[in-house]
Design a protein around this nucleic acid. Structure first.
Lengths: 95, 95
DNA sequence: AAATTTGGTTTATATTATAAACTACTTTAT
DNA sequence: ATAAAGTAGTTTATAATATAAACCAAATTT
């Protein structure tokens, strides 16, 4: 009947981050923070979680003297997102 | 960009319950438990929350000597579900 | 009448999310 | 040169959620 929803993606902020990364394939921390309208602390935590499970790659470097965090979705992340969306349909279908 | 997702509905079990209730308009606790494959304790708590915010009405009665809990979605609940689904599209659109 | 089943609720615990405080460094203004 | 403010995050503490386990009350079965 209802499919399990990946708890990693069933979070507003993490879902928004993945959704953005699917569109652009690479994005800065600050870009994600602006687009998701989240606090830096929360975003930092959620990016770490997405990285821990292998849904994104995180590259830390410096740009114009400032630290810069770049995020990229992985193949695994794309697959997880697609499955999440598909499973979600089992909840929305009856509406 | 991303719309806020109603935290009451952004829960796998509560969303499943509402999804079921939209289909049938009235359902027993036991029916919901079977269909959602949840534990009675968890379901009891989540039904209480849906009732607290006015998304469902809960009627307690007896049937064949046993207590029976009936749940019905309210107009407010239907509206909330529809809005949740619409807002969710802002997250899934780029996939 | 003891054990099991039905239909739940309550309570305790694990997991998540969020915000606030902090680190480390850079830029700007004085 | 130094103080104040800004950038780019991380860590930590707290609140909210979810889940499971234990419990309750009555009914049924053996």
């Amino acid at each position: 009947m209802f499919k399990e929803l990946d708890p990693i993606l069933h979070s507003q902020l993490r879902l928004a981050v993945i959704s953005l990364l699917i569109g652009v394939k690479e994005a800065e921390f600050t870009f994600l923070r602006e687009k998701t309208n989240s606090t830096a602390g929360n975003l930092s935590v959620q990016i770490q979680k997405l990285k821990d499970v292998g849904y994104i790659d995180v590259i830390k470097q410096f740009k114009d003297n400032y630290p810069q965090t770049i995020c990229k979705i992985t193949r695994k992340g794309i697959k997880a997102f697609e499955e999440y969306v598909a499973n979600l349909q089992t909840y929305l279908g009856k509406g």
